[in-house]
């Protein structure tokens, strides 16, 4: 019999119901698109005439931002329910999330593709599948920076696919990212460092116990974290640039997170 470390089981237990998240976000985005649709209601039309302005149709990029924003809400919800995180004061919780929100967003995307298991298509958090043809079109329209980042993401997916990273390991990675011991000025610094060490130890124990034939699996997994961090940093820079040029829809958690790190 295999003994999965209790901590790893606890991490899996704290995972959100994917279908619930999917329903919540797809409903939200459907409403949003309805609101933004040029001919949605008579009231809207009247308003448009009055303001003499065409309602702006949500661009693909704008839609992606809303999707990322909604994903962030679900990430915060997840963190709130996490073992260890609950014990921290809100100030420390905020500092940890400010530090890692984009890494958790990128990991969320990557993990979804990984467990989706279809190399040719991309699965969105809404449950929609982007077909290879649509994906190619999107890449062509995206511009060099964005398409480069998406491709970098796909490479990371492939690497983790080769490793066959499982769901329990994915859950551990989320904790390693959340409890980053490099975050400074925490009220409870030693607690965060201690949790990080505990998660590290649990993941090591898990890989040795479940995959004893691959003794370097643990380090192989950890080696992907700097790549993830680099990609998320690039995504943040890109979002900042888009935000400054007024292309990111406003009043949301995404922008608040962008500001928090830059100020």
């Amino acid at each position: 019999g295999l003994t999965v470390p209790a901590l790893v089981l606890e991490f899996v237990r704290c995972e959100q119901d994917e279908l619930q998240v999917q329903n919540k976000i797809s409903t939200h985005l459907a409403h949003l698109q309805q609101e933004q649709s040029p001919r949605s209601t008579v009231a809207n039309q009247e308003q448009n005439v009055r303001h003499a302005a065409k309602p702006e149709r949500l661009t693909t990029f704008g839609l992606m931002c809303h999707m990322a924003d909604q994903t962030l809400f679900s990430i915060v919800e997840w963190a709130r329910g996490c073992i260890f995180f609950k014990e921290l004061k809100v100030g420390d919780q905020m500092k940890l999330l400010h530090n890692c929100w984009s890494e958790l967003l990128v990991l969320d995307y990557i993990a979804r593709q990984l467990h989706h298991g279809k190399a040719e298509s991309v699965l969105l958090i809404t449950g929609q599948e982007v077909t290879p043809v649509e994906f190619t079109t999107l890449l062509a329209q995206a511009g060099v920076t964005l398409s480069g980042m998406i491709q970098r993401g796909q490479e990371l997916v492939h690497r983790l696919q080769e490793l066959q990273l499982d769901r329990r390991e994915t859950a551990c990675l989320k904790y390693l990212i959340l409890f980053n011991p490099d975050v400074k000025l925490l009220e409870n610094q030693s607690y965060v460092e201690n949790v990080y060490e505990q998660v590290n130890a649990a993941l090591l124990e898990y890989t040795l116990c479940v995959y004893p034939q691959y003794p370097d699996r643990f380090s192989q997994i950890l080696m992907r974290l700097p790549e993830l961090r680099a990609l998320s940093a690039q995504s943040e820079d890109y979002l900042c640039y888009k935000h400054l040029s007024g292309e990111v829809p406003c009043n949301n958690l995404l922008i608040e997170m962008l500001h928090a790190k830059r100020t």
């Binding site: 809400f73 915060v76 919800e77 709130r80 809100v90 919780q93 905020m94 999330l97 400010h98 949301n252 958690l253 608040e256 997170m257 500001h259 928090a260 100020t263």
Partner: peptide
């Protein structure tokens, strides 16, 4: 700066029910 973090603080602080 504080105003910038209002939404996150609210989300972390709010009661579950």
């Amino acid at each position: 700066k504080k105003k910038d973090n209002a939404l996150l603080r609210y989300l972390l602080d709010k009661d579950d029910n």
